[in-house]
Design a protein around this nucleic acid. Sequence first.
DNA 1: CGAGATGTTGAGCTGACTCAACGGGAGTGG
DNA 2: CCACTCCCGTTGAGTCAGCTCAACATCTCG
Lengths: 240, 240
Amino acid sequence: MSNPLTQKLASLANFSPDDADALDRLCRNTFDIRAGRDLIRVGDRSEQVFLLLDGWACRYKDLPDGKRQILAYLIPGDLCDPHIFIFEEMDHSIRALGDARVAAIPKQVILDLTDRYPALARGFWWSALVDEAISREWLVNVAQRDSYTRMAHLFCEMWLRMCQVDLARDGTFDLPVTQEQLGDTLGITPIHVNRVLQRMRAEGLISTNRRQLTIHDVDALQDAAEFDPRYLHLDARTPA
Amino acid sequence: MSNPLTQKLASLANFSPDDADALDRLCRNTFDIRAGRDLIRVGDRSEQVFLLLDGWACRYKDLPDGKRQILAYLIPGDLCDPHIFIFEEMDHSIRALGDARVAAIPKQVILDLTDRYPALARGFWWSALVDEAISREWLVNVAQRDSYTRMAHLFCEMWLRMCQVDLARDGTFDLPVTQEQLGDTLGITPIHVNRVLQRMRAEGLISTNRRQLTIHDVDALQDAAEFDPRYLHLDARTPA
DNA sequence: CGAGATGTTGAGCTGACTCAACGGGAGTGG
DNA sequence: CCACTCCCGTTGAGTCAGCTCAACATCTCG
């Protein structure tokens, strides 16, 4: 149960110790990645899936004019690239944000495993659909909310997701992300990110410290964010 | 082969006449929906999947402050709600745009079918991943591009998707969408949508007529849109 | 201890918004 | 067949959130 994926999927019903064991055994072949390194690049063809064990990563796309969009944050327990089961090539890249540790799992191992443990197959599917739901909510966020609300929304989401894998304490969690990267996530300039952060700090909602974020009043932040956690499809055992 | 889903999946390899037959047989139980009606609403629990046979629909979310975001367009051949295999409740709604016709397929039929025809299972999975890829590209679009480019990008995408199911002729296809709905799709006000459309018309790129869009110069529009179709993962047999 | 990356501040600009009004077409009922 | 109405599209004018450009400060790490 040291495994963050197990932890995440355990919030689903029908998850036997057997299933959990099978999952834990996946994480033999691990290695470390330095901050800022790409795990996978656009156009790559890979024979293995990466499971993020420690640290953060992001999916992103570079545009021809030099702009960049971060499409998703990956935190411990997230699978980086289930796409390779179907697509020939990745249509986006994945990069480590802080230093990170991943397990490399051969395609075939996943296929065998899901054959043998239906609860796992269902877990992976569930997880893929949650990722999709998050992506939809990000679209809503960027398209409809102003920059302040948008950022508040992102923080609420990441807080809940970090809670789910037990990586948040008292509203504090790692957020190994520069202001520029926040901008590339939310579709605003880094300068404006800075101003929004200052406002949130001034209002006592958050504070930041060495790439850690502390949310002082989760309820207030959720209100400011128009945040409704249902899209995360967290089941049963979740905080607040 | 009268079936748009068959048409779409046929662009995948390894698709036998048997598979196609199985698909065609799904479309027995069809019915019509009037424009503007919801097929599925947030919170619904459904025992069947809807396959769109004719007309357009959209996924959307309503926000507490009355704003609305359109998350995806569904065109003939698209499955409306594969989510129900995993999630208890829909986290968004689906609405017919023009008048539409759908087939209602019981969950269990899909499950049996994919057991029996692995090529179909793979086809559905492929299709789900393409939807996800499109959703990611919409995020890029809304977050990074100005309103003109954004709209051009949407038109390019819809043109290609309509081509894929053979519903576009000479750059002309149905677009049963009001300017307000375009705004809700792209995150801009309907007034601004109007101005952008006028500019595109003035530049001779497009014209609109009774809910039909004509693209006069696809290449020029793709250039204006910074459009790179790879994210659609159209295989082999596709136009231009 | 130097240098590049990251964060902060100020000032002016602009793409898209708001508000407000008007026009035209498609359906409806008399 | 016409009048009415409602929805949709169009136009104009003023405003503002967030952008650009340009410094400067601070931090991290080799």
